[in-house]
């Protein structure tokens, strides 16, 4: 059974772009009223609005009214409403409290609201496991295809609030700062995909998805080598690697990963656009699909050696603090 990405869409308010002629893979400025009626929009925080819009665009591009299942990943959930309810509760000392922020704060509100809007009674689930949140949802999508379902809507989103900025800054300043450089910034965004086991006109094949728990660099290289050979692809057949790193961090895992490939392999750093958030690897996948479709790499994320040849195979690698490693291989 093969897995195809029929369509994808991203809303990325935090996007940083450089260069006037960017071939934008994402939307940063969305008129949400086009996608969501006012009586529902009024309660929706950023993370839900972004997700409903991205989900609807992905479905529209796939020519679908309704998916058979809705799967969402989110690392930190609905933070705006969590913070709002907490603030309210602490200030009022558990007195009279507004219920809206509470009901909007549960992690599965994103998937639930999409299901509600689409009137979709299909399977609906939410994964929340740091930098594997999206990947767990994507694995579940593949399992659905194996079970005979089709047209699965799968996506991921995270938003940031002041408190998170403060927490992360504080943690980074106390020295737990692998992967942090002067380029580092926190982002937020939502990416959604329609996946199918049937190839369509603009489909991109999701050839392989491999998750690993905590590991060491040499074990990572061994697994990567196995992963590539299990998909009958040699390292020199990978046309572009997209990394969840920033340039020149000295991260030993990204270094070990790159050693498997030629020094001159074209490399892109998606977080230069998206910033860091737990589910930003969903943007990386959307970006990879966009690059394969348009055969062009945005200036702002390209790190080294822009390619001259046709782009056929892209490999995405991400990890979080030496844990939650993922390889994602896509092909045109």
């Amino acid at each position: 059974m093969k897995t195809y990405i029929t369509s994808s869409a991203t809303v990325l308010p935090s996007a940083k772009t450089v260069g006037a002629n960017e071939n934008s893979a994402y939307l940063s400025d969305v008129n949400y009223a086009e996608y969501i009626e006012p009586k529902l929009l009024r309660r929706m925080s950023k993370v839900i609005r972004m997700s409903v819009a991205a989900a609807k665009i992905a479905l529209r591009e796939a020519g679908l009214e309704n998916p058979e299942a809705i799967l969402v990943g989110t690392g930190l959930g609905c933070l705006t409403d969590t913070q709002r309810f907490l603030t309210d509760m602490c200030s009022a000392e558990e007195g009279v409290l507004s219920p809206t922020a509470f009901i909007q704060s549960t992690h599965n509100t994103i998937a639930g609201q999409i299901g509600l809007l689409l009137e979709c009674n299909g399977y609906n689930s939410t994964y929340s496991d740091r930098a594997h949140s999206f990947e767990q949802a994507l694995l579940d999508a593949q399992l659905h295809l194996l079970e005979g379902s089709d047209n699965i809507l799968v996506g991921a989103a995270d938003e940031t609030v002041d408190l998170v900025e403060n927490v992360v800054r504080s943690i980074n300043e106390t020295g737990n700062s692998s992967g942090v450089t002067k380029d580092y910034f926190l982002g937020e965004g939502s990416s959604f995909f329609v996946v199918s086991d049937k190839k369509k006109l603009n489909s991109i094949e999701l050839k392989g998805l491999k998750l690993m728990p905590r590991t060491n660099p040499s074990e990572l290289q061994a697994v990567l080598t196995d992963f590539l050979s299990s998909h009958s692809i040699a390292p020199n057949e990978i046309d572009l690697i997209i990394l969840g790193d920033w340039p020149n961090t000295g991260d030993k895992y990204y270094a070990a990963f790159r050693e498997v490939f030629n020094n001159s392999i074209p490399t892109a750093f998606y977080k230069k656009q998206s910033g860091h958030y737990f589910t930003s690897s969903a943007y990386a996948l959307h970006l990879g699909c966009h690059i394969l479709r348009t055969q062009s790499i945005p200036e702002s994320i390209s790190g080294t050696h822009p390619p001259e040849q046709i782009l056929q195979n892209i490999l995405i690698y991400n990890h979080y603090k030496a844990n939650k490693h993922s390889f994602c291989l896509i092909s045109k």
Partner: peptide, 26 residues
């Protein structure tokens, strides 16, 4: 704070080294 960390913590305490999954559907 997050759900994933709760799962990781329990997994490490119980001595597991393999992949974890965390589901949060209320």
């Amino acid at each position: 704070h997050d759900c994933g960390k709760t799962t990781d913590f329990i997994s490490e305490y119980l001595g597991f080294k393999n992949l974890t999954t965390t589901i949060s559907t209320a």
